[in-house]
């Protein structure tokens, strides 16, 4: 019997993206540049996070016309973002035939108490996290892939590093714990006990975990890979730089060869200006995107 939309095919697509770079694009032309550079998927947006941050106001799901033009222009998987808790935006994206939905803190949340119940969709979801508890809550709701939140649109990798280290530290703690400690850890982390218990046995997350939020250079991408990311999302970092095509190619090569500094040095040469960066401490706390969702 043929079965579609299963946990196996949802998490399986995330497995196929591993070791790759997922790039934010806002039109068909950028999508083609990303595909030719070797992106393993693209994220279809109306504006990259740096512009969303600059514009303020309410950020929503992109216009279906923009998304469809991007879907028609490339043969790699196309992702799109919906607002946290906005399950109708997710239904619309699924109806468009999108390959992956990012329930994203980069857009303005539609529900401050609930995330989408993702198990009821056939399309897979990726969600952001800042630590292991948040990752396991999203997986419990049906996320087939996890990414660090980082701080999108800043070109500053510090938050992505913080979140990746927090996830890794959480995993180490659960693995090292004795069985009688697992319930207390689950309570403290606010994570589903079954997932904590499974992690204790397997020693790894049940889904793929990418890094996102502030990656701007080949070295940033390789840093996140060496910290244990399965792959990277690059948002504003490519099309807000002075030479998007060269930078995109360099980040792809650095992500594959993250353990080879000589290759990272070679591809980092003469890429031109990276995107302008922001110091996280200068951003008012109410404007931090990572604090959206729980």
């Amino acid at each position: 019997m043929v079965e579609r939309g299963t946990w196996g095919v949802k998490t399986g697509l995330a497995q196929m993206l591993k070791g790759g770079v997922i790039m934010d694009v806002t039109n068909a032309e950028q999508a083609k540049i990303a595909e030719e550079a070797g992106a393993c998927a693209v994220m279809a947006l109306e504006r990259v996070p740096a512009d969303i941050r600059a514009a303020g106001g309410v950020a929503r799901m992109a216009d279906p016309k923009v998304i469809q033009e991007i879907m028609n222009s490339v043969s790699i998987p196309v992702m799109a973002k919906c607002r946290i808790g906005h399950f109708v935006e997710a239904q619309v994206l699924e109806a468009l035939g999108i390959d992956f939905i990012d329930e994203s803190e980069v857009l303005t949340p539609a529900d401050e108490a609930h995330h989408i119940w993702k198990h009821s969709f056939k399309v897979p979801f990726v969600c952001g996290c800042r630590d292991l508890g948040e990752a396991l809550r999203r997986i419990g709701e049906g996320a087939a892939m996890i990414r660090t939140k980082g701080e999108a649109g800043t070109g500053n990798v510090v938050e992505a590093v913080r979140h990746m280290r927090a996830v890794t530290e959480g995993i180490r703690r659960v693995v090292a714990a004795s069985e009688e400690e697992l319930m207390a850890i689950a309570k403290e982390m606010g994570a589903p006990f079954e997932l904590v218990s499974e992690l204790h046995q397997t020693g790894k997350l049940p889904v793929v975990n990418f890094a996102a939020g502030g990656i701007a250079t080949p070295a940033d991408a390789a840093l996140m890979m060496q910290l244990g990311a399965d792959g990277v999302f690059v948002g504003s970092g490519i099309f807000k730089s002075s030479n998007p095509s060269a930078r995109a190619k360099a980040i792809v090569v650095a992500t594959t060869n993250y353990q080879n500094p000589a290759i990272i040095a070679e591809v980092s040469r003469g890429l031109g200006e990276a995107m302008p960066g922001l110091d996280i401490k200068q951003i008012p706390s109410q404007e931090l995107l990572a604090a959206r969702g729980w």
Binding site: V2, E3, G5, G8, V9, G12, L13, S75, D99, V123
Partner: peptide
């Protein structure tokens, strides 16, 4: 992608 997009992915 001869079977279609991700929503057409399947197990059998």
């Amino acid at each position: 992608n001869g079977f279609g997009r991700q929503i057409d992915s399947f197990e059998i």
